[in-house]
Nucleic acid binder design. Structure first.
Length: 286
DNA sequence: TACCAGGTCGCTG
DNA sequence: CAGCGACCTGGT
């Protein structure tokens, strides 16, 4: 187990921030995180977080995954007092961070996200993993009768590999609640399969934001918004600023003269997350 | 019952 | 190039 103090992070908020669709609360504050082919559980205890892995794995995988090198306090400070809307959004979603998620997983989940709602996206992703994912053993957390945290074995499903979806074909993608998005996902799976697919993705990871965005736009089913989500969540180009129906509404309501993107050059995507979180959770939170 | 959801495609002017 | 209807489907 790893015990570490982390500021500006709340797992419940991250789970409800619409960037990941497989994070869930098991019981009494135990969060399960399934990321690609990896699994971990975490709880918060006072000022510290407890993670169900060894120090080595935490440093190699999870430190990076939770973007613990990111200075969120610094980002927040850039927002001026006068912007009372964004100040309030940050106060509401103070613990949201941009996870460094798997590129392939982001391609698929944000293809699913288009013109869709979050509960249904989660259902489709879950069924996709159940059908095509690999069953693996991971480590979880459990409170012992003595009131001590201990590690337990937990089985989970990995996010399916491109070739397993590609070989399933369109018929294999039925009954997952994907609707018309099934064909986009099949195309994407074919694009990302095999050695060529590996290269396509690794080149994408090396590209800067402009080039990555342009490359993504050439893909069937990926438009401006999904491309920005993939850039932000799958490639960690935090300058990407996805504009969806919610953000559009926020801008018309609070920024009639346009959102000041210039002010937040290179990290506007971080602020977009606070805005989005506030928009979809403000009612439930009160 | 209609409308909406982390939009994009394909067609028209 | 801009505008606009169609589109799967579950939730409210």
């Amino acid at each position: 187990m790893v015990r570490i103090k982390i500021d500006d992070m709340d797992l419940g908020q991250i789970a409800k921030s619409g960037q990941c669709f497989r994070m869930e609360e098991l019981e009494q504050g135990i969060w399960s995180v399934t990321a690609g082919t990896q699994y971990i559980e975490a709880v918060k205890e006072g000022e510290e977080f407890l993670f169900s892995c060894e120090e080595e794995e935490f440093k190699r995988v999870w430190f990076h995954y939770f973007d613990l090198e990111g200075d969120y306090c610094g980002y927040k400070k850039q927002v001026p007092e006068e912007d009372s809307y964004l100040r309030e959004a940050i106060r509401c979603g103070w613990g949201v961070r941009i996870l460094r998620q798997d590129l392939w997983e982001m391609l698929v989940t944000f293809l699913i996200s288009q013109n869709n709602n979050i509960p249904r996206i989660k259902g489709s992703v879950r069924e996709l993993c159940n059908r095509f994912g690999e069953e693996k053993k991971g480590r979880g957390l459990k409170m012992s009768s003595a009131g001590m945290w201990e590690e337990v074995t937990r089985s989970f499903k990995t996010f399916p590999a491109p070739d397993s979806i590609a070989s399933a074909g369109l018929p294999g993608l039925s009954d997952l609640g994907l609707g018309y998005r099934d064909k986009y996902i099949l195309h994407m799976a074919q694009c990302c399969s095999g050695p060529d697919g590996e290269k396509w993705m690794s080149d994408l990871k090396k590209a800067d934001y402009e080039n990555a965005h342009a490359t993504l736009l050439t893909q069937y089913g990926i438009g401006k918004k999904v491309a920005d989500c993939v850039c932000l969540f799958g490639l960690h180009h935090v300058g990407a600023f996805p504009v969806d129906t919610h953000v559009k509404q926020i801008i018309t309501t609070y920024y009639p003269n346009g959102f000041p993107l210039n002010r937040y050059e290179g990290y506007a995507g971080i602020l977009q997350q606070y805005m989005f979180y506030h928009k979809i959770n403000r009612l439930a939170a009160e």
